[in-house]
Design a protein around this nucleic acid. Structure first.
Lengths: 138, 138
DNA sequence: CTGTTAGCGTTGACATTTCAACACTAGGAA
DNA sequence: TTCCTAGTGTTGAAATGTCAACGCTAACAG
């Protein structure tokens, strides 16, 4: 039998937050920081790019688990920096600008590498599968 | 064989961040919010309490994965609210006040319940063990 | 037409986090 | 002694996130 005592739920949650915090800091230090982008900038850019360059604002919020206000402020800032544009069409559609696309392409290789280095390379294939299924459920 | 395609590292990382964001929002809504504490307040209080009520500031930072500046500002705010005290002893030692202890005890049962409800109850014993081992490694 | 309700987004004030720059201390080397 | 160097903590300004309040639009009932 395994000798690991069942962790208290709160301790498991603390470990989760700590791991998130540490991996996040390392990945950002290796990517956004080097590209003159903030972490939220990068998060939005990658999500938009993955969706083909445009998304409804509410879908963007849902896919990140962010709330309306946070997305709104963030997009306002990114608009001023010329990374995205917004237009009303029923809801609001957010679109990547040329500058925005360029920024994603520039950072992407480094981001992939950093995520592998600080995250997935430390996990076995079996663990990745379990983790993936767990995260989907939360 | 499993038919789940191996997820791109970046996608797994996004899923990790999203799960963290969602669980965090739910737990906080059910606990700190109800107790007049902020999330970082609660995080610090729980950690200090677990350590017996006092810790070196740098140890607190390391155990949370936070950086110096963040801890410093946070403790300054909490000091003003009467939750902790600091004194210089080689490094700086942070101590829970009576008010601080009281606050932790008051929130603790609700916190345990919320973490179970939004997090561990959704995982099997097997998954908890895997997750626990993975998080330790990161 | 007049409400009413719900979804979606914005705004401004305030709280928290980050960033760059600055002390302070201890320890060792010149 | 003086001069590094590393580790630790603080400060103030700028960036980001949160909260409460508001406005807009569409759908629907009266």
């Amino acid at each position: 039998m395994s000798d690991a005592a069942a962790p208290e739920p709160v301790d498991l949650w603390s470990a989760f937050k700590r791991a998130h915090e540490i991996v996040r800091a390392r990945v950002i230090a290796d990517t956004a920081e080097a590209a003159g982008l903030s972490e939220p900038d990068l998060t939005i850019l990658v999500n938009l790019n993955k969706a083909g360059g445009a998304l409804r604002q509410s879908e963007l919020a849902a896919s990140l688990g962010w709330d309306r206000t946070r997305i709104s402020h963030q997009l306002t800032r990114m608009g001023k920096r010329g990374l995205v544009t917004r237009e009303r069409a029923g809801g609001v559609t957010v679109t990547l600008t040329g500058t925005g696309r360029q920024a994603v392409s520039a950072v992407r290789p480094g981001l992939d590498a950093a995520v592998r280095r600080h995250f997935t390379d430390k996990l076995s294939a079996q663990e990745i599968e379990t983790l993936s299924s767990v995260l989907r459920r939360l």
